[in-house]
Every structure is written in structure tokens, then in C-alpha cells.
């Protein structure tokens, strides 16, 4: 592979990781949604570049799905939900911004260390994509557990899925059937999340999932 092709792939995958950090860094819901849309666009560019490099035209379809579904439809719908719920103000975090960023850096280091033993057999690009993808997945998980607001948790879940797609395309592409089913299950999950959000809101007058704690099995407070 030519150095330029490698550099562009590196740039796009690294850009996704940086956008994952930006997701953690933002403290307004609308900004979070915009960064999420940007990440999906970076993902589709990255997948499209892989299609060119690996000479695998079906990856173009994957890129288009990522662009349309996750770059346009889901952020647009989330923007509507946020406007209807009137929660475009600050993001509530379980732990503060600084510790979250430090944990995120630790997770990136961890994923690099994990991919490190994968030595021969695969090209450097695959290995690198794997490291980036693992880091994006872990950061998505981190975002899900450090946010109290259900909307930002959904964004964390979706960005985790971005990482999965990145990993799959790096490893010699994935079958189109799998890609379609993943895309549709994401849409279905999104619809379920949407309904779920409005139900929480109806029941508790807020989308702070802390309100759900009272109904957990162990009955933490007996008020």
C-alpha cells in the first residue's frame, strides 16, 4: 500500500477517535449531537477510503448507509426529540470532565496495548484500525456510563456502534447482509430508545435516568 493511502486512512480513523474525545468533552446536548453527526461522516469517509484501498465496492454501500442513517437521520431525529423535550441545556455528568478525559486516555492506552500483541498475518492498517476501533468502542461505553441524561447515553451507544463498523471494515470488509442487518437493528434500537425516552419523560417529568434508581430490585431507599 502506498504511504499516502496509509496516511489518509490513518487521518480518518484518528479523526474518529478525536471526535470520540470531543463527544466526551462537550457539555451541551446540541453540540454533542453535532459532534456525533460529524463522527458518522468521518466514519463514512473512512469506510469509503477503505473501499478504494481494498478495491471492495460493496463497502461503498456501507459508507452510504453510515452517512445517511447515522450522519443525517439519527442526529436530525435526536435534535427534534431534544427540542420537543426542551432539554438542550447542560449535560449532567456522573463524574466531572477532567476525570472522564483521563479515564478516556487510559482506555485509549489500554486498547493500544491490547492490539499490540497482534503481530504478523495482518497489515499495519488493519492493526491500526483495530486499535482505533477498540478505543472508539470503549469511549462510547465510557460515555454511556458517565452520563445521566438518556439522550447522551443513546449517543454513546451509537458512537460505540460506529467503532464496531470501523473495526469490521478494517478487517477485510464485512458481508453486506451483516451490514444491512446491523444498520436496521440500529434503526429499530433507535425507535425503541425514542419511545422509551418519551415514556420516561411522561412518568418522571425528566430524562435523568437517576430517577429510575428508585425502582431497582435492591430497593436502595425505602422512602
Amino acid at each position: 500500500m502506498s504511504p499516502l493511502a496509509f496516511d489518509i486512512a490513518h487521518l480518518l480513523a484518528g479523526g474518529m477517535l478525536v471526535l470520540s474525545f470531543l463527544l466526551l468533552y462537550q457539555d451541551r446536548i446540541t453540540a454533542v449531537l453535532n459532534v456525533f453527526a460529524l463522527q458518522a461522516i468521518a466514519l463514512s469517509l473512512s469506510v469509503a477510503w477503505q473501499a478504494v484501498v481494498q478495491d471492495a465496492p460493496h463497502l461503498i454501500v456501507t459508507a452510504l448507509i453510515a452517512l445517511v442513517v447515522k450522519g443525517l437521520i439519527i442526529p436530525g431525529a435526536l435534535h427534534r426529540i431534544v427540542r420537543r423535550l426542551e432539554i438542550h441545556r447542560e449535560v449532567e455528568q456522573v463524574i466531572g470532565g477532567g476525570p472522564t478525559m483521563l479515564t478516556g486516555l487510559g482506555l485509549v492506552a489500554l486498547s493500544i496495548l491490547l492490539v499490540q500483541p497482534v503481530k504478523q498475518d495482518v497489515g499495519i492498517l488493519t492493526r491500526e484500525d483495530l486499535a482505533f476501533a477498540l478505543a472508539v468502542i470503549l469511549l462510547g461505553l465510557l460515555m454511556m456510563i458517565t452520563r445521566r441524561n438518556a439522550v447522551t447515553q443513546i449517543v454513546g451507544f451509537m458512537s460505540l456502534e460506529n467503532g464496531l463498523v470501523l473495526a469490521a471494515t478494517g478487517a477485510r470488509g464485512m458481508p453486506l447482509v451483516v451490514e444491512f442487518s446491523v444498520a436496521f437493528s440500529i434503526l429499530v434500537a433507535f425507535i425503541v430508545f425514542g419511545v422509551f425516552l418519551f415514556r420516561i419523560r411522561e412518568r418522571f417529568d425528566s430524562v435523568d435516568v437517576g430517577a429510575l434508581d428508585r425502582f431497582r430490585g435492591e430497593r436502595r431507599d425505602q422512602r
Binding site: Y25, M101, L105
Partner: peptide, 16 residues
């Protein structure tokens, strides 16, 4: 902290 995170990411990406 944003600057620190960007610097640390730069170092990590170089290791990859």
C-alpha cells in the same frame, strides 16, 4: 485539559 488530552492522543497515535 483539552490541550493535554490532544497532546496525549498525539503521542498515543504515534505509538500505533
Amino acid at each position: 485539559g483539552g490541550a493535554f488530552a490532544a497532546g496525549a492522543l498525539a503521542v498515543f497515535l504515534l505509538f500505533v
